[in-house]
Design a protein around this nucleic acid. Structure first.
Length: 464
RNA sequence: GGCGACGUAGCCAAGGGGUCAAAGGCGGAGGUCUGCAAAAUCUCUAUUCGAGGGUUCAAAUCCCUCCGUCGCCUCCA
């Protein structure tokens, strides 16, 4: 079955054609680690994870590369709206490098909690400065650069199709920006490949280069690293929709200038998570929510993953605790159902029935990652009266290779002694038909965070 | 100013010319079960897709206008 993907380059849904049959090379623009990832950022990584899993499910061999942007203008002193955590870290006397280390680890933990498969290559910008310098050298050799004001610029006027990804118009009017123009730029869309001068002089991260001591421009790392690991022509590049007009546009410009041919075949972009009054999540708006905050409020990270899967990646998603509760409750029900299925004695496995369900699932997921539809198929399976329990279990297991919700690892939660004693006491009270006492004991158990369900000859307890 | 999107039930959200008198989940209502609950389970919960026009045999789906909302143009998922 073909995998259909919406390609930003053409604005159309296209059937995926790999460069090498049976293989898919995917590059994902990772996080800039100067702060914690918020749940909006995380949407992008769940998206690329699902993309990869779909290819794996279709028996592709996948090479997934993701960068960690650990170079940037971190030393800026008069940066307003600075995050308190970052300020706090600095107050503790941490260096830029330590901050980067700290937030990288936090990011990796979030990815793990969300059951995101670790990319095959996780590369840090600061480990690839040489590669970037090499690439800038190629761009320069091909005649696409100029030096002005101490910095190396990319000359966008040399490229006939600059801005094709975003559909930018290159006339003067289109270039009007709300930011003051850099006087050294020859053309409004030109951008810096290598800095030796910067408005904040105390840049902590600096390296030697043919153009002087300084640091790389903001786009070159993705071009250099992706091509290093995936080749000078590769299949898929993903990222947030905000990257389309600037970051990805410039990546394309410099890469095609360096290599002299087209670079990436499919560009996939995820939409934003929206919060409150349809605003995007950001620090400055004061609506910054971390995954850890949700965990502290009693949500499982996979509840959030389920929530994300409930919407298409190219649509804005309106976040609210109410919506997250819906996901949480749905996950709880699914877990209960799967746990029940597991307890049923082995029944006949029906491979035809599986194939049929699997086809529906694949049709959904191969159609530009329609995970909401895929979840609907999952529900149909779990609620089916026709399917045997072993068929359901097998189906859920297979679907979960794409969904990544750990549907089948329904680990038993240890119930504390205290709660078990109360439950026993309650069972005795119930047998003595002392309902008043039984109800009081039940209240206590609920207060301790467990729920008790009466069964014919006993009870069942689980975490609520 | 330029560019890009969106508006489907109480909430989240699929669909995107006929098979839609519109998936799925959550919530809500009622029933079964229960000492009562919980859990489970069953039934119900948009004649309608922001508003108004138009195209068509046929529109939530295409076109136009309007209203409302958002993103990007600065690092940004």
């Amino acid at each position: 079955m073909k995998i259909l993907l919406t390609n930003t380059l053409t604005r159309k849904k296209e059937a995926f054609e790999p460069i090498t049959p049976g293989r898919a090379g995917i590059y994902t623009c990772g996080l800039t680690v100067y702060n914690y990832a918020h749940i909006g950022n995380l949407r992008a990584y769940v998206f690329s994870d699902v993309l990869k899993r779909v290819f794996l499910y279709n028996n592709y061999e996948v090479k997934h590369v993701m960068n960690i942007t650990d170079v940037g203008h971190l030393t800026s002193d008069d940066d307003e709206g600075e995050d308190k955590l970052e300020a706090g870290a600095r107050r503790e006397g941490k260096s830029v490098w330590e901050i980067v280390e700290y937030y990288t680890r936090a990011f990796l933990e979030d990815m793990k909690a969300l059951n995101i498969i670790k990319p095959d290559v996780l590369c840090r910008a600061t480990d690839h400065i040489e590669d970037m310098i090499d690439m800038i050298g190629k761009i320069e050799a091909n005649g696409y650069t100029y030096v002005a004001g101490g910095n190396v610029y990319f000359d966008t006027s040399k490229l006939k199709d600059y801005g094709k990804l975003a559909g930018l118009k290159r006339d003067e009017e289109a270039a009007r920006s709300r930011v003051e123009a850099d006087p050294y730029k020859r053309n409004p869309f030109d951008f810096v490949l290598w800095f030796t001068r910067y408005k904040y002089h105390n840049h902590a991260m600096q390296w030697d280069s043919p153009w002087g001591r300084g640091f790389p421009g903001w786009h070159i790392e993705c071009s250099a690293m992706s091509s290093k690991y995936l080749g000078e022509r590769f299949d898929i590049h993903t990222g947030g929709i905000d990257h389309v007009p600037i970051h990805h546009t410039n990546e394309i410009a410099q890469s095609e200038a360096a290599f002299g041919h087209e670079w990436v075949n499919y560009w996939l972009h995820n939409e934003f998570l929206i919060i409150g009054n349809d605003e995007k999540m950001s620090k400055s708006l004061g609506n910054f929510i971390r995954l850890q905050n949700l965990v502290n409020q009693g949500y499982d990270p996979l509840d959030y993953r389920y929530y994300l899967l409930g919407a298409h990646y190219r649509k804005k998603l309106a976040f609210s605790l109410e919506a997250l509760d819906a996901a949480k409750n749905a996950m709880k029900r699914i877990r209960t159902k799967v746990a029940e299925i597991k307890t049923v004695e082995s029944e006949q496995y029906d491979s035809d029935a599986f194939d049929k369900m699997n086809r529906s699932f694949l049709e959904a997921v191969n159609d530009d990652l329609n995970t909401p539809k895929a979840l609907a198929v999952l529900w149909r399976v779990l609620d089916s009266e026709q399917l045997s329990s072993s068929t359901k279990l097998k189906t859920a297991e297979e679907f979960d290779r794409v969904l990544g919700l750990k549907l089948v690892d329904t680990k038993e939660v240890e119930v504390p002694e205290e709660v078990l004693l109360l439950a026993e006491e309650r069972l005795n009270a119930r047998r003595a038909r002392n309902w008043e006492k039984a109800d009081k004991l039940r209240d206590k158990i609920i207060k301790l965070g467990y729920e008790i369900m009466d069964r014919k000859d006993g009870y069942e307890i689980r975490r609520s």
